[in-house]
């Protein structure tokens, strides 16, 4: 089972890597969007999938990152990629400040508070808060990123930037998932009283998960701003948060391959359904319902954690 999965992942990775050579600019750009949402959804997955916090306002941090990049880039002309960590930092700090008082809220109460956050941020952006966000016009004239002297401009160039970033994200988040920290998150997701009893400072861990997720979303905002060269508040509305939420749950909470597949489906299918014109979103909605009915835990739920007890006990017990 495990080997088969690995073969599929490798084959998938190779096809993806080569895809700009046989896809046209449009499909490459679809894949770019899928890539951006994959990274966003992976960052949400830390909060929603691993820590089990009902967070439906991830677009807020994504927006903060994008606007940080846009504002600093257009006023001080600092190269885009230098602003990558800055965007992450701003989003992460914001998460630290806002999450502290709300992190103890139970499930659905947290859900509405995070929805509130994304709406407050959007309204602030629309109303041109502090005179720096450009109101509903947004900010335009953001420069393109330059990587080692190469100006990134065309869809296929962005493809490698975005999926390169996605690969790094997948690697790091996979390590995180398998670390003590990741196990602690899963523990408090399943039973936070028991986790607290076992010496896990649950509020602290939840907060860290929140900040990591927000930090990463902020960095995606940076790339999004550079790719679009114009950003407007409408790109970060509540619906975007819902889309991310759906990706994580449709793919499989807490499963990296699941989340990747989820973003392919949630972003790719409406594009494929374009041939149905005005009915495309109708079909998409029905698809979501059907998918959840047949795969209630998501399409690719995480494999159960395995611990190599066999190694400890010698060869006798196979797991």
């Amino acid at each position: 089972m495990k080997n088969k999965r690995i073969v599929i992942y490798v084959a998938f990775g190779v096809i993806l890597l080569l895809s700009p050579s046989f896809l046209n600019a449009y499909w490459v750009d679809v894949l770019n969007n899928v890539g951006l949402y994959t990274i966003l959804a992976l960052s949400l997955n830390i909060i929603l999938g691993h820590a089990g916090l009902f967070h439906m306002g991830h677009a807020a941090f994504y927006a903060l990152g994008a606007y940080t990049t846009a504002i600093i880039n257009t006023t001080y002309h600092i190269p885009i990629l230098w602003l990558l960590p800055v965007s992450g930092l701003v989003a992460g700090l914001a998460a630290l400040v806002v999450a502290r008082p709300i992190i103890h809220l139970r499930g659905d109460y947290l859900l509405i508070v995070t929805i509130g956050l994304v709406e407050i941020i959007r309204i602030a952006l629309v109303n041109n808060v502090f005179g720096i966000t450009g109101g509903s016009n947004g900010i335009f004239g953001i420069s393109r990123p330059v990587l080692l002297g190469w100006k990134i401009n065309k869809p296929w160039e962005f493809f490698y930037l975005i999926w390169g970033f996605a690969a790094v994200t997948i690697f790091l988040f996979d390590r995180l998932e398998k670390s003590r920290f990741g196990r602690a998150l899963n523990y408090l997701r399943e039973d936070d009283v028991a986790a607290e009893g076992s010496g896990i400072n649950t509020a602290h861990y939840k907060l860290i998960a929140f900040v990591i997720g927000a930090f990463w979303a902020g960095m995606v905002g940076n790339i999004f701003a550079a790719k679009m060269t114009i950003i407007a508040p409408e790109s970060f509305n509540f619906w975007e948060s819902v889309v991310l939420f759906m990706i994580v749950l449709l793919g499989g909470r807490g499963s990296i391959p699941g989340v990747i597949l989820g973003s392919f489906l949630v972003l790719g299918l409406p594009e494929i359904f374009r041939q149905f014109a005005t009915a495309r979103m109708l079909i998409f909605g029905a698809f979501m319902v059907v998918m959840m009915i047949f795969r209630t835990e998501g399409i690719l739920p995480p494999l159960p954690r395995k611990y190599p007890i066999a190694k400890v006990l010698g060869r006798e017990g196979s797991v």
């Binding site: 600019a25 969007n33 679009m228 790109s235």
Partner: peptide, 18 residues
């Protein structure tokens, strides 16, 4: 369809230009 939102519009534009 540009869906009335900038991100979808960028995709629609890529699609039309090919």
């Amino acid at each position: 369809d540009d869906g009335g939102d900038p991100r979808t519009a960028a995709l629609a534009a890529q699609r039309l230009s090919t």
